[in-house]
Design a protein around this nucleic acid. Structure first.
Lengths: 258, 258
DNA sequence: CGCGGGATTGAACCGCGTCAACAGATGTGG
DNA sequence: CCACATCTGTTGACGCGGTTCAATCCCGCG
């Protein structure tokens, strides 16, 4: 059996949401990714408007998908954790709609656009898995529309912390109720659509309620469920997240994903 | 040659964004759709949380995709014009994440879930077209995140009117600079994430600038480009919309899509 | 003619943004 | 190893954009 690296494992695990992917497809995918390349914090992996010939599979570190207005206002639309593709949209015949920038020092594998397209052509189950994953991600983005369009500052911040918590939990990247959040406050503010100052004040509100504790980049949520309820986190999504978590635990036990 | 109805034409046209679909695939698609069924205004086609065995292809009338919070706050995440599918996500093994409700009297064709899945299985180009369409729609949804997270009330309202204008233009559903907007103000308010009262006041602002004129459901944009600039509508998206418009004009000339 | 849904208006209020200053941590070059 | 610059977090003061609540107007319709 071919040795698969843990990034590919993570990636394949993400895609397994709607059914397993043939091992052969995963191996074929591994064949087209390049060696890991290093990006500094703030380096762009994808530039809004560009037509690039490569997309990236993140291996270590966080990246942010974002769009900016001419006057500099910025909205972050997604956080890319390890094992994610920067831009499936590269298959489309127009430029990237968003930028993707490294939020931390980051390592990512390059994937040639044409190889990627050819691979999907020959591996229908892999293509389908990517299609289904996109449907899921789109649903998450719509949930964020509800967040930005209807929820107030406290709800948004509670939602943010709980969602990060749940996602890292699903990846086995939690230590108890503590995790590392390698983002500065202005970045989080541009995720939840509020000013840095007001995010800071809202954060202090949650600190005073003992719902969020911070120590440098370490964040602890002593009562995550209380946060989720405050944020009106959708029960169905919690359920899906928990299933995910259970499967992820199995995956990490088997393959020691770090 | 098999006779295709105009709804299927519209649908196929929408999907052609990243390449033509074999005529045979389109015919096969037509084979699995049921006769048009009537929905009253406010009737749900899809209910948030439900696991249904059918999805719908809209033929006549508008529908709204929306999500609501437990306390009733609602965010509309998409407007479905004729020739759109209510919920590709039905292929996924979990319930609908959003509701879709008729915004007007509406006619739609039912599609059986299993037939739909089987069709995609056998028609890789059709499946790919749906995948690519989903990528595009997701990009639009991310643009709305930027709208709700960063733009102010005036920009949001300007953006809304221009986007509807551009989409209807692409479908040949404009009469000069005038179109029919069959939505009440509270619905538009829930699209742009603001209160009905403030939407009304913002609308009056644009009326006083002669940028938007209304007469019942008739809306006229005397200077659409000025609106687009005010909204900081992305130039690339304008370009794509114009290409679309050009192609749509050809389609409607050929097939007399109404 | 009365009813009901939607549009519009007024007034009061406040959530959140803006601006500006300061504190603390980290880094960097001399 | 200090001096200084830079970046991030925090706090205060102020005011505006937008919400809320409650009328009132308008129009189509039974």
């Amino acid at each position: 059996m071919i040795q698969l690296n843990s990034t590919i494992r993570l990636f394949a695990h993400r895609l397994s949401g709607a059914g397993a992917i043939p091992e052969a497809d995963i191996e074929a995918f591994q064949d087209i990714i390049g060696p890991p390349i290093r990006f500094d914090k703030h380096d762009p992996l994808v530039q809004q408007g560009d037509r690039s010939d490569v997309l990236w599979l993140t291996a270590i570190g966080w990246a942010l998908r974002q769009r900016v207005l001419p006057d500099g206002r910025r909205q972050i639309s997604a956080i890319l954790l390890p094992g994610e593709l920067t831009d499936k949209g590269i298959v489309m015949p127009f430029g990237a709609t968003d930028s993707v920038v490294a939020a931390t020092e980051l390592w990512a594998h390059a994937i040639d656009r044409n190889s990627f397209i050819a691979l999907l052509e020959n591996r229908p189950r892999l293509e389908r898995a990517l299609f289904y994953e996109e449907l899921t991600r789109h649903a998450v983005t719509r949930e964020w529309l509800l967040l930005l369009g209807q929820r107030n500052a406290k709800e948004r911040v509670a939602y943010f912390f709980y969602e990060i918590f749940a996602r890292l939990s699903a990846m086995g990247m939690l230590h108890g109720n503590t995790f590392t959040l390698p983002l500065v406050q202005s970045e989080v503010a541009d995720i939840v659509g509020m000013s840095t100052v007001h995010f800071n004040r809202t954060l202090q509100h949650f600190r005073s309620l003992d719902l969020v504790m911070t120590d440098g980049q370490k964040v602890t949520l002593p009562r995550p469920i209380a946060l989720a309820e405050l944020a009106m986190f959708d029960a169905e999504i919690i359920r899906i997240a928990r299933d995910f978590q259970a499967r992820a635990a199995m995956v990490s036990a088997k393959f020691s994903v770090k």
